[in-house]
Simulated scan of single mutants.
Amino acid sequence: MGATPLATDITVFAARARIPFHRDGPVPAPPPAAALGLTARERDVLRLVRPDAATAK
């Protein structure tokens, strides 16, 4: 299809902008608790104290 130059340009642009880009597809988003910077142990404690905390919105 001839999209190689475009794919190369996109990869270069993403690297310059420090945007994670993978040709294999999108990178899965981290779990919400990971975005809070909680350790695995802290997440375990939250699950024990409040079982629905891991899925709270």
Rank of each mutant, 00 (worst) to 15 (best):
M1Y: 10
M1A: 14
M1D: 10
G2I: 04
G2S: 12
A3E: 05
A3G: 08
T4Y: 00
P5L: 01
L6H: 06
A7C: 04
T8P: 00
T8N: 11
D9W: 01
D9M: 06
V12T: 13
F13C: 06
A14P: 07
A14R: 07
A15K: 15
R16I: 04
A17W: 06
A17K: 11
R18P: 02
I19V: 15
I19Q: 11
I19F: 14
P20I: 09
P20R: 11
H22M: 12
H22F: 14
H22L: 13
D24C: 11
D24A: 15
D24L: 12
G25Q: 09
G25L: 06
P26H: 07
P26C: 03
V27K: 11
V27H: 12
P28K: 14
A29Q: 10
A29G: 04
P31K: 05
P31Q: 07
P31T: 03
P32M: 04
P32G: 09
P32Q: 09
A34E: 15
A34M: 06
A35Y: 02
A35D: 03
A35V: 02
L36P: 06
G37H: 13
T39E: 08
T39K: 05
T39G: 11
T39Y: 03
R41Y: 10
R41M: 07
R41W: 08
E42A: 15
E42L: 02
E42G: 03
E42D: 14
R43D: 03
R43N: 03
R43W: 01
D44C: 04
V45K: 03
L46N: 05
L46W: 10
L46T: 04
L46K: 00
R47H: 07
R47F: 05
R47I: 02
L48P: 02
L48S: 06
L48C: 05
V49A: 14
V49F: 05
R50Q: 12
P51G: 13
D52E: 14
A53I: 05
A53Y: 07
T55S: 11
K57R: 13
K57S: 10
K57D: 07
K57Q: 07
